[in-house]
């Protein structure tokens, strides 16, 4: 039982670290703020949850697992808010590459939904 939990913990830790590396590669290679945010989400949510699961499998006590749950809930509640603010600031500072967008719903909202051609912009 102890061996199984330790192996699970090691797998979780390595997968979480791998997600961090993938996000860092995406940060260096992707072209604009929005696609870099897409890469940045991986270690912030899934990578962190995997690392926390790794800690939980290794420590296996109630108080520690409660702290880990607190960290997970807090990160899951705040990461979307921060990402929303960064994305909106990027859009409004004209840092978005529009040729990479398939659908620009913010432009539709700015036009009051009157111009269907804005969908293709």
């Amino acid at each position: 039982m102890t061996g199984v939990a330790d192996v699970l913990s090691a797998v979780c830790l390595i997968t979480g670290a791998l997600l961090s590396l993938i996000a860092a590669i995406g940060l260096v290679r992707f072209p604009d703020v929005l696609s870099r945010m897409h890469a940045a989400t991986k270690p912030q949510v899934l990578g962190l949850l995997l690392i926390l699961a790794g800690i939980g499998f290794r420590l296996r006590t109630g108080a520690d697992i409660t702290t880990l749950l607190l960290i997970a809930v807090f990160q899951l509640a705040t990461a979307p808010v921060a990402a929303h603010m960064v994305g909106r600031a990027a859009y409004r500072s004209e840092l978005v590459r529009r040729d990479l967008l398939l659908l620009d719903e913010a432009a539709e909202a700015a036009d009051g939904g009157r111009d269907p051609a804005a969908r293709l912009g």
């Binding site: 670290a17 860092a24 940060l27 800690i55």
Partner: peptide
């Protein structure tokens, strides 16, 4: 955005050290 990722990496490193 990159600073957020760096912070996530630091959290991952601290957590991995605590686990190991």
């Amino acid at each position: 955005v990159a600073t957020d990722v760096l912070l996530a990496v630091i959290v991952a490193a601290l957590g991995a050290e605590a686990a190991l």
